[in-house]
């Protein structure tokens, strides 16, 4: 069972502005039966470019209906220019959030709004001009790129949650990965937390090793009545000396390799080799 916010449930059970505006100034028709959801949004715009009326018809799940309903509430009273700035995140926020697998419902709302505004302005939407990447749901590369940029998507799964692309047969996964790499790669590198810088000066390295020994290694050893001392750093070779109870411990080699070396590799440089002073 999905965890829907009260706001989603409210809009689902009592949807606002259901129907079609007569003699609509702009109509946005997105989605299809095959895709499992579809939205027809109709707008009435007055001579000052203000949206005076908005109605929807939606085929889809609770979050699709709620997204459509809240969208009509949001745009009524707005100027066309203001409405054009509404993002899918704005729609989701107005509902108090959506489950991540349902974000595509908010995207459908934004797409319908865009289509209706373009229809009103007599323009043709650029998004449809892209090349279809996901054939199951008819999603174009331009739509995928836009979603990546607007919602800072960083994985195929997220792309599927937002655009549905890749959610069918899965054949387009490689293409999506390429698009993701190209789109994200151009702006910034995907940095995962805990990534270690590759180059360090000898001094930086020694300082960092000292720090880690002090903070991460020593307290554990002291608990068992032992201690550790840094003897030498020669390239990636680190020489240490165990003190106190650790010195005579039969497991000292295990302590060095499994505990000290692992910690230093994890937190300083993954090429380090730790050895005990003879």
């Amino acid at each position: 069972m999905w965890e829907y916010t009260d706001k989603v449930q409210q809009h689902f059970l009592n949807p606002q502005n259901v129907g079609e505006v007569e003699n609509a100034s702009g109509t946005g028709d997105v989605g299809s039966l095959a895709c499992g959801d579809a939205l027809k949004l109709t707008l009435k715009v007055d001579e000052n470019d203000i949206i005076t009326e908005a109605k929807f018809k939606t085929f889809g799940c609770a979050s699709a209906i709620a997204s459509s309903s809240v969208l009509t509430e949001m745009v009524i009273g707005m100027s066309i220019d203001q409405a054009a700035n509404i993002s899918n995140e704005d729609i989701a926020d107005a509902l108090g959030g959506l489950p991540k697998e349902k974000m595509h419902c908010s995207v459908m709302g934004r797409e319908a709004l865009e289509a209706a505004i373009a229809d009103y302005r007599g323009l043709i939407l650029p998004m449809a001009a892209g090349e279809v990447v996901c054939e199951c749901f008819g999603v174009t590369d331009l739509e995928v790129i836009r979603a990546i940029n607007e919602s800072s998507l960083r994985s195929i799964e997220e792309i599927t949650n937002f655009t549905k692309a890749g959610g069918g047969c899965g054949k387009c996964e490689d293409k999506l990965r390429d698009i993701l790499r190209e789109t994200v790669g151009g702006k910034s590198e995907i940095v995962s937390p805990g990534t270690k810088p590759k180059k360090m000066t000898a001094l930086q390295k020694i300082k960092k090793i000292e720090e880690v020994l002090e903070r991460e290694v020593r307290p554990g050893l002291k608990k068992d009545g032992g201690d550790i001392e840094l003897i030498d750093v020669d390239g990636d070779f680190i020489t240490v000396s165990l003190r106190g109870a650790c010195k005579s411990c039969k497991k000292s080699q295990t302590t060095i390799k499994e505990y000290v070396e692992r910690k230093l590799r994890e937190l300083v440089l993954d090429s380090l080799i730790v050895e005990e002073e003879n």
């Binding site: 499992g36 959801d37 085929f59 799940c61 549905k164």
Partner: peptide
């Protein structure tokens, strides 16, 4: 759509299932 039907049925305390995409989390 099935999920929408189920949630309305749920309001009347009727429990059933659907083969729709939206209920499974798949698309």
């Amino acid at each position: 759509e099935g999920e929408a039907i189920l949630l309305h049925m749920n309001r009347h305390k009727i429990c059933a299932s659907s083969g729709s995409a939206c209920t499974s989390g798949s698309l």
